[in-house]
Design a protein around this nucleic acid. Structure first.
Lengths: 208, 208
DNA sequence: AATAAATATGACATTACGTCAATAATGTAT
DNA sequence: ATACATTATTGACGTAATGTCATATTTATT
């Protein structure tokens, strides 16, 4: 990951160093004053580079945040990609519960960065698009999982799997933000168990 | 509503007229260029008043939007206040379905204003707080409804009603924004029916 | 008619933005 | 080694928006 940009010569090296300095400085500034209040001037001052330099490497503070968020994005994608092939309603519930738990725990693990993300989503269309990509990835995956469960007679077939998937993800997402804001009522476990119980209870067949 | 501010004298009248001009102009500007891009200069120009005048009546464009949103807020509060005392699982589902439908239809009715709201929530803490008030009002109401259903043996008692209420509202809210953005997949009816089916199926007792 | 009080105004200081011509650092060719 | 080319960095500049405040205008009171 760090050596993705291959160092070819001293020139390029200098460029990369400068970019790194900017990213590191931006991270500190963002976490201190928040995304909205952060200014390019603050960042270049902390990075000890000239004003124009920031615009050589990034189009603005939005793009800096996008780069900083990339590894968090990666973690989300990993969670989205767990395989799903349960043989019973109970097994399905366990898989779904653990996935919901992983998702919500991410809020605690990456709270600081996600706080920035939340602030930025409202302001910046590019960041909003980035989060949208995560969301659609999850919804797509959940949608497939429901279709699978419906195919094998585990889930109710009369429900539109795409709409159900979206609704289920939305509940998870909103609780994620709540945890990020440290406003949640119960523990992550309790939240995950409760919402999973309602979801699986409503989606899966009751008689078997 | 219009005569809430009693006109006492010509002076006060002039002040009110100016305020109205600003509100009307702001509405047009907001709907044309969006909340973020709107500037005080644009608004005062359209209202045909001096620059400083805007700051006499409002602390900034956030406060103007808050006033503009007030009647939309009112409509939400009305939806939140429908009474709930079902005698059966089916009756409960019907009430819940119709409430979800009303809520989502609001997205279509007030799409323009809600688009502004969505943009502004990310930027402005005061507007975010205003939306939060709506949200908590709904969650509080839903929470009471679940507790009622649990008390009368209609809903599963092992579930934490506050957490369930929050999760259910979140699904509704996110679909609301999706409809506001005109990105929704199905019709409002289909969405409402689907999410209500999963929700009531998961929350209410199956054997009776 | 003179004075007081409320309202409205726009010039001003401030702050942030993004650009660009000039400068510095590094690489290449003779 | 030296001259030239390329890449990277810099900060001053023009622009645009903000909120404030002393001044002007309008309305009320004595």
């Amino acid at each position: 990951m760090t050596n993705k940009e291959e160092v070819q010569d001293k020139r390029h090296l200098r460029s990369i160093k400068t970019k790194q300095k900017l990213l590191q400085a931006a991270r500190e500034i963002f976490l201190t004053v928040g995304f909205q209040n952060a200014t390019i001037s603050q960042i270049i001052k902390k990075a000890e580079v000239g004003y124009g330099t920031a615009y050589v490497h990034f189009s603005g503070k939005e793009e800096i945040l996008i780069v900083l968020m990339d590894h968090v994005m990666e973690k989300f994608y990993q969670i989205a990609e767990v395989s799903f092939s349960p043989n019973s309603k109970e097994e399905a519930r366990d898989i779904i519960l653990s996935q919901a738990m992983d998702f919500l725990k991410m809020a605690e693990t990456e709270r600081n960065m996600l706080q920035l993300f939340e602030q930025a989503i409202g302001t910046s269309p590019s960041i909003s698009a980035k989060w949208n990509a995560i969301r659609e990835k999850f919804i797509q995956r959940i949608s497939e999982d429901i279709a699978y469960a419906q195919k094998y007679g585990l889930a109710k077939t009369e429900l539109n799997h795409k709409l159900v998937a979206r609704g289920w993800f939305y509940t998870n997402e909103m609780y994620l933000w709540e945890i990020v804001r440290n406003e949640q009522q119960g523990t992550v476990e309790e939240i995950a168990k409760t919402i999973t119980a309602v979801y699986t209870g409503g989606l899966y067949q009751t008689n078997e």
